[in-house]
Write a protein that binds this DNA or RNA. Structure first.
Lengths: 143, 143
DNA sequence: CTATGTGCAAAATGTTTGCAGACGA
DNA sequence: TCGTCTGCAAACATTTTGCACATAG
């Protein structure tokens, strides 16, 4: 995996640095869809000198070479996902967690949109909102 | 339409003010999905003393009573839509415009997600990205 | 050795908040 | 009249930028 990032970076003319590897490795080892600050905080113990700006700059590069996708789920900050295959996300309105939704075929839906709009489509993002299983247990009275 | 806003506001215990009516009327008369600053700027000629904070505060109320929906299309700011029926949006990556996609049935797709996830779903947002018809004409060589 | 990357701090951007005076009900 | 709303400015949070030093290739 790490060697893949290395190759991808070099191919596009970007240098391979410990920070970039650390950020990508961290992101691809979590399912939590962290935002920049969370990534920064979680890497602090290992890279105490790394700055938040580096996280942002690195994310921009990783997005550019297609190694991460950027999520914007109606929050005030962006989240990042190393799982780049296009898949829907669902956010718990109670605890704020964001989960992947895998193995769903939106094919028909996407095709309909593609044929009904005059846009030249290049991508899509599907966001669902609700209450996650854990939060459902904790409060039987969802306000 | 305006009388509807008036009623909705009163029912929920909010006061009816010229600013709130102006903002809602402006929003429901455009298809451009403006952000707060655009709304503010466009209302300046008519309400020169209205502040940006009022736009934000009003949007929060209108969202709460279900008269507008808030869009977050991977941009740095939020957009607002007075067409509250749930429908997909598509953003032109070239000029930045955001259009509605009407008359699309995502039913099957939504049902699949609802049954495959353990979330208690309450809503969803679908965003598509591409190049709009106008921009396609202007540059035959989309990079 | 050279060009790019990092880390820091400052700036920019979008949104929220606190409060005194204004105004809808 | 009374409680809410407005407008202003300051506060806030997130992201971006500029620059001196460090480092990958």
């Amino acid at each position: 995996m790490a060697i893949c990032v290395t190759t991808m970076l070099r191919e596009r003319g970007f240098k391979v640095t410990p920070q970039r590897l650390a950020i990508y490795n961290y992101l691809s080892s979590t399912k939590a869809h962290p935002n920049a600050e969370t990534i920064f905080n979680d890497l602090q113990p290992v890279y105490p000198t790394m700055s938040l700006a580096t996280v942002y700059k690195t994310m921009e590069i990783l997005r550019e070479i297609g190694l991460v996708q950027v999520l914007n789920i109606g929050e005030d900050s962006f989240r990042y996902d190393a799982f780049t295959e296009n898949h829907p996300h669902v956010r718990c309105m109670s605890c704020g967690r964001v989960d992947d939704i895998d193995d769903i075929k939106a094919g028909k839906f996407v095709d309909d949109v593609a044929s009904s709009t005059n846009y030249q489509l290049t991508g899509q993002q599907f966001y669902f909102f609700g209450v996650c299983p854990e939060c459902q247990k904790q409060r039987k009275n969802p306000s």
